[in-house]
């Protein structure tokens, strides 16, 4: 379960008598979060095809709780930008990112999303990190589904290591009060 910080307490002689599991809020919340990372598939070009492959039964992203692609940003946790982002599409990418609820993460899938790849051209932004904060850059043109799944596993590790109130408004208010 929640790795690392875990202790069990039994009330009676055996486990059947009932008991409790002791852990920290961070561990419990992060355990839930990292096993249900719902992606927002920002499929902009051919990388989106590899993303779809990763979701199929052959590669089975569902093993890591990330198969529930949500087309509403309000229900998504991780935006996977899969493809070449033009300046015009950048407006939509940024708006969708803003509409995602905290906490949220971003994966730049493939060479184009990371650095624009071969497109040093007039309509293409040279990497999505100019307009959204990126947690993981996935190399490849396009990356194979295994690569994306590996990135999801890395993201799970990252989520598990964060504070549970990451990005939450209440935490910010407390911080503001503390500094005032």
């Amino acid at each position: 379960m929640a790795q690392g910080r875990l202790a069990t307490v039994s009330w009676g002689e055996s486990e059947e008598d009932g008991g409790a599991v002791l852990t920290t809020v961070d561990s419990l919340v992060n355990w839930a979060r990292k096993n249900s990372l719902w992606p927002l598939p920002m499929g902009l070009s051919c990388c989106a095809i590899e993303f779809m492959a990763a979701a199929t039964s052959r590669f089975d992203m569902a093993r890591f709780g990330a198969e529930v692609a949500r087309f509403s940003p309000k229900q998504a946790d991780v935006m996977i930008v899969a493809g070449t982002m033009t300046y015009k599409m950048g407006e939509a990418v940024r708006r969708l990112y803003d509409q995602m609820a905290e906490p949220k993460w971003v994966i730049a899938m493939g060479a184009c999303a990371s650095t624009a790849g071969m497109f040093r051209t007039y309509p293409v932004m040279q990497g999505i990190d100019h307009i959204v904060p990126v947690d993981f850059y996935v190399p490849g043109c396009p990356p194979r589904p295994e690569m994306l799944i590996n990135t999801l596993i890395q993201l799970q590790k990252k989520v598990a290591s964060e504070r549970a109130h990451k990005g939450l408004r209440v935490a910010n208010l407390k911080a503001e009060k503390a500094t005032a």
Partner: peptide, 17 residues
């Protein structure tokens, strides 16, 4: 027309954000 465009990525980012 310059191949890489006229506006920089920073200018575009400011506009988009």
């Amino acid at each position: 027309y310059p191949m890489a465009g006229i506006m920089t990525d920073q200018e575009w980012a400011e506009h988009i954000v």
